[in-house]
Design a protein around this nucleic acid. Structure first.
Lengths: 216, 216
DNA sequence: TATCGACATTGTGTATACAATGATCACGAC
DNA sequence: GTCGTGATCATTGTATACACAATGTCGATA
């Protein structure tokens, strides 16, 4: 594995799990030493992170980890909505019926069995992979990848609550079955509803966290 | 100006205007020598072009200029439609009325006067800038920038015809006035129509070019 | 005491040198 | 004659050295 890949993976992970908090200044020399690579591959890693939007060059002198505030989340979800609604419509038109019917069934099972959180996230991931595959659009796929990269941090901010998780499973089931039925409008609207609910929950959780920290 | 910026600008320009044709292999040493920079900044430039999707690392050994075929154009326009419809809707909700009313008026004037091609492209560019500004969404803006970068090459493939240009001005006028009126649905649908017409023209022009070259 | 200037320190931008990997060509064996 | 194996060569990946720019601090002067 290339040193630049290792550096990118390490920095990405550190930023996503919060080890490198927003606002942290990433000096080339410093990070190169920390990760055990030289400055050249580290610069490449930083450039990739900058392209992803996870770090930003504030001045030629300082590269910092980007912040995640409520307005960023708004922007991210506006973008996400545009992409995922388009994706859902395309999938409804193009997807082989069987694939998403099977996924809908699995979402149904997950609800009934009440499987744990990991199982759900795994199922969601497979749903995303299938979606990317049937959409057959590298631009959309690439943009969705960016969105998902940022979502990892957003999810970390808002604690996931079990009620929301159950609702989310049910919403996914509807989206999958709409795609399976070839109903583009329903797939689009169900996606819209899903994202609206997800955003509402996240913002509420964020407000709660602010109030708590304010009270503490 | 940084050497890496110069290299990026030079390569971008060369790719967009066709001096570096699709499929061209870009060796680091070779291009560094050609552009008069060392390999380090050139690598950075190549990385940025790869992030833009204008070049691709086929193997760790060869970086080539990406091809533009009909399927790529389909993908690009699916993506563009998702972004621009979302952008039009957001603008209709958020834009100060006056700004886009003025733009609509200018599009109207352009039609009447029959101003030349450069004036139209200039007006379009200002429309895009205004759109980006009122949308206030860095993710959307960044994705739209990528789309526009690719569109430059697509436009080169299809020769622009005057009839289409006139229609395009008229379509833009409607989009601008819909945004000015705060009518999100109309702005979205007018954008949809505009992109449909643009794509149709491009694909037709592409077919024509193929037949001609086949006949020649 | 406050402000301006100069110098030092730190960190990035670029170049170049070195190491490693992959490809190609030639030679030999089957 | 063809296939396989090895060696050489080119090209990338990484490291390091050097140059330049920016910022901060210290001192001197007003």
């Amino acid at each position: 594995m290339k040193a630049s890949d290792r550096a990118y993976a390490a920095l990405l992970s550190d930023i996503q799990n919060g080890a490198l908090a927003p606002g942290t200044v990433l000096g080339e020399t410093e990070q190169a030493a920390r990760l055990g690579v030289s400055r050249t591959p580290l610069r490449e890693a930083l450039a990739r992170l900058a392209a992803d939007g996870l770090v930003v060059q504030q001045s030629p002198r300082v590269t910092v980890v980007t912040d995640v505030d409520a307005d960023d989340i708004r922007q991210l979800f506006e973008f996400r909505e545009a992409l995922e609604i388009a994706a859902a419509r395309l999938a409804a038109v193009r997807a082989p019926r069987a694939v998403f019917a099977a996924l809908a069934e699995e979402f149904d099972q997950t609800t009934l069995v009440g499987a744990g959180r990991p199982a759900y996230y795994d199922l969601i991931a497979r749903f995303d992979v299938e979606l990317d595959a049937v959409i057959d659009n590298s631009y959309l796929a690439s943009a969705l990848r960016t969105v998902r990269t940022h979502l990892v941090r957003v999810r970390r901010l808002s604690r996931d609550n079990p009620t929301r998780l159950a609702a989310s499973v049910s919403e996914h089931r509807l989206i999958a079955s709409a795609i399976a039925a070839g109903d583009a409008d329903l797939a689009a609207h169900a996606t819209h509803v899903h994202l609206h609910n997800a955003l509402t929950t996240i913002l509420a959780s964020l407000d709660g966290a602010i109030h708590e920290s304010g009270a503490a």
